[in-house]
């Protein structure tokens, strides 16, 4: 009996456990600092979610570990960077409307360009090696080299300073808790994307087919659905989300550089392993764990910040090898 309860409330138990663990740092710091760090962690987590969700769905549905996701992320940042350059007046204007106009334009450009790039990648390169894990990783790794080098050819090999829309800068001071404005924007974007993805997956037929495909690709094909079209579509969406993540992250960290994808790809992998392959909810939870714990630990024990995520990943792998949330298989 207890076993069935554990099983039925499995996911809820996991979330409750994580929530308790994440409250622990409160013992080590003043509550106001905790709140500030929590908002920073949530913002970082949401940005990681944008990257990781694409990796996770592509891995779940297509069984492709897409190494090129990091490069697509960097492409998103660079396309956004160029859009901001073109719309410099809007970016510098002291107007919320114009700032958001520039931001929206950058998002649309970045997502469109990178989604098309993702489609080309899937059609031309990845499709040739479906069913062979090793070659998939190798070939997407090759694609990463090419994509990153293309950034260096087009935008130059050096770092660039990413401009931030004027009204996005600065803080709010709510009851002495300092809240960075842009972080709130990041959290909102992440929540919005999560909601939209969940809605599509749960309520539309296309979403159902994708979820069914994560569980059993062959069966979805044998039911008359063109799985290859689905693959291309999902790859494009995943690439688009990576681009959004890249753009948002570059504004967050105030810079773009050709290699920026590799760092965040690594974070994304950790998130996917923690959250469970193919699960969007898992990606969100995993991303928030990584974002929050990184920020708490960076404050409490600065030298351990870089390693804490890997430690968490290893612990979770040891106690729950398939990740916190499992989708289907």
């Amino acid at each position: 009996m207890t076993e069935t309860i554990l099983k039925r409330w499995d996911n809820e138990l996991v979330i409750a456990g994580i929530a308790v663990l994440l409250l622990l740092p409160l013992f080590g710091m003043p509550p106001k600092t905790y709140l500030t760090l929590t908002i920073a962690g949530l913002a970082m987590g949401m940005l990681l979610f944008l990257v990781a969700s694409g990796v996770s769905i592509i891995l779940g549905l297509m069984d492709v570990l897409n190494f090129a996701h990091g490069a697509l992320f960097a492409w998103g940042a660079y396309v956004g960077f160029s859009t901001f350059k073109l719309l410099e007046k809007w970016v510098q204007a002291d107007s919320v409307l114009l700032n958001f106009g520039a931001f929206a334009a950058a998002i649309i450009c970045a997502m469109t360009v990178v989604a098309v790039l993702g489609m080309v990648l899937e059609r031309v390169i990845v499709r040739r090696v479906y069913g062979n894990h090793l070659f998939q990783i190798l070939i997407t790794f090759g694609a990463t080299i090419v994509l990153v080098e293309m950034i260096r050819v087009i935008w130059g090999p050096n770092d660039d300073v990413m401009s931030v829309p004027l009204t996005f800068q600065g803080n709010w001071d709510v009851f002495d808790v300092i809240i960075d404005r842009y972080r709130i924007i990041c959290i909102l974007i992440g929540a919005l994307v999560f909601g939209a993805v969940q809605l599509i997956l749960k309520k539309t037929k296309l979403g159902l087919i994708v979820r069914a495909g994560v569980e059993n690709r062959d069966m979805v094909q044998a039911m008359g659905h063109n799985i290859f079209l689905l693959f291309t579509g999902v790859f494009a969406v995943g690439a688009g989300l990576a681009a959004l993540g890249g753009l948002a992250m570059s504004i967050f960290s105030l810079q773009v550089y050709p290699d920026m994808g590799s760092t965040y790809l690594l974070f994304a992998f950790i998130v996917v392993i923690i959250g469970g392959l193919g699960s969007v909810t898992g990606s969100l939870v995993g991303a928030l764990i990584v974002g929050l714990s990184y920020n708490y630990v960076a404050y409490l024990v600065p030298w351990a910040a870089a390693g804490v995520n890997i430690i968490i990943m290893i612990i979770i792998l040891l106690i729950r090898p398939k990740g916190l949330f499992t989708a289907g298989k």
Partner: peptide, 18 residues
């Protein structure tokens, strides 16, 4: 492009794999 020799190696890499 020659300065970015890695680009050429990357393309070569993909072509060899395929």
């Amino acid at each position: 492009i020659l300065e970015r020799w890695l680009l050429l190696f990357g393309i070569l890499f993909i072509l060899v794999v395929i």
